[in-house]
């Protein structure tokens, strides 16, 4: 278990810059999500930490060891792949034991630790199966067991849950978190699923165009995004048109140029709520979705989205005037204009 320090790492592929002066610290034992659109460099960063790429400049430390020139097989990491990448020619037990055999731990020790790892991922009875005989969720667990059985210093996960269907994915998220806590391993996790990142991690790093945009605990990043990109990428944001700013109580942050409100912070009514910020618009649509509902309200030609419990949204005919209200504290302020 170690902390990982990435310092001023730059990486080019041909002429394109995949990582641009990236510095980031992953705390010992933490669960860190790297989030960003495709092409943002999140996977490149993960694979550079793993050792599949060497950075053009900058340094990477795992624990006390400088590793930026160490090939992947010597870095003592564990990694899980999007499609699990189980060895199809080996049984589950041999898959998990592969890293131990490479390290020459001895047959008895290998058996013991494989059994232990299988227990940890609750697959104790499936050791002799082939990967092809397992379900998606089971393969997932085998891949995880294989990645941690060697007790690596850091666990790297490359969109490990994206191949699962929704229900299984939620189960596996909880399971992954439980196992990570139990083992206490530093974990870095790449995803494009913002909800997954918010649920699982202690800290989130948002990347864009090979640069780190913002790093922090999920709540902080969600509630206090540093710029318009972070605000729109992590969750949805309704941007306040400059013409409507007058008369509202807005946070004074230096250089703040744009303001936004999250859909779930808004309430809809025929009158403005007292003591809150409110703007008037025209009701456009009310979409029922079981417990929750979404409505779209036309504010000067752009649509604001409101997400609330269905019963909290009054039945208002489309085309009628409505008021959207929110607490001043829920206003997001970012420096650059959206």
């Amino acid at each position: 278990m170690s902390r990982v320090d990435v310092t001023a790492v730059t990486k080019h592929f041909g002429t394109s810059k995949a990582l641009d002066d990236v510095s980031i610290t992953f705390d010992d034992g933490g669960f860190f999500a790297l989030l960003g659109p495709s092409g943002s460099g999140k996977t490149t960063l993960l694979r550079t930490i793993a050792g599949f790429h060497f950075p053009d400049s900058g340094s990477i430390r795992i624990g006390e060891r400088e590793v930026q020139r160490v090939p992947v097989e010597k870095r003592d990491i564990g990694m899980m792949f999007q499609n699990y990448a189980l060895f199809p020619n080996m049984s589950v037990a041999d898959n998990i034991g592969f890293g131990l055999r490479v390290r020459k731990v001895g047959a008895a020790e290998e058996r013991r630790r494989v059994a232990e790892a299988l227990e940890l991922v609750q697959l104790g009875h499936l050791g002799q199966r082939r990967p092809s005989q397992l379900s998606g969720g089971q393969r997932q667990r085998v891949a995880l067991a294989r990645a941690i059985v060697t007790r690596p210093r850091v666990l790297l996960l490359d969109e490990p849950l994206s191949a699962l269907d929704k229900t299984l994915r939620v189960d596996m998220q909880l399971e992954l978190r439980r196992i990570q806590r139990e083992v206490g391993i530093t974990t870095i996790f790449v995803t494009h699923d913002q909800e997954e990142a918010l649920t699982l991690s202690d800290r989130i790093g948002i990347l864009k165009d090979g640069r780190i945009v913002q790093v922090g605990p999920p709540r902080e990043v969600y509630e206090r995004p540093v710029d318009a990109f972070a605000a729109s990428f992590l969750g949805e944001a309704n941007w306040l048109p400059p013409s409507r700013v007058a008369g509202l109580e807005l946070p004074c942050r230096s250089g703040a140029g744009s303001f936004a409100v999250r859909p779930e912070a808004l309430s809809v009514a025929t009158v403005p709520a007292p003591g809150k910020n409110a703007i008037q618009g025209r009701m456009s649509q009310h979409v029922f979705a079981g417990a929750m509902a979404t409505c779209l309200v036309d504010i000067d030609g752009s649509y604001w989205k409101v997400i609330a419990r269905d019963r909290d949204i009054p039945q208002i005919a489309p085309g009628a005037d409505v008021w959207l209200s929110w607490s001043a504290a829920d206003t997001i302020a970012v420096p650059t204009p959206a």
Binding site: F52, V72, E73, K74, D76, G78, A85, N89, G99, P152
Partner: peptide
């Protein structure tokens, strides 16, 4: 053979010869 399988083997410490002998050849 999926590139990820080879990457996975390397990530858990396998060298070139191990990969050749235990993965590429059998597969």
């Amino acid at each position: 053979i999926d590139d990820d399988i080879i990457d996975a083997a390397r990530s858990i410490g396998a060298g070139t010869l191990t990969i050749l002998w235990r993965l590429l050849l059998p597969l």
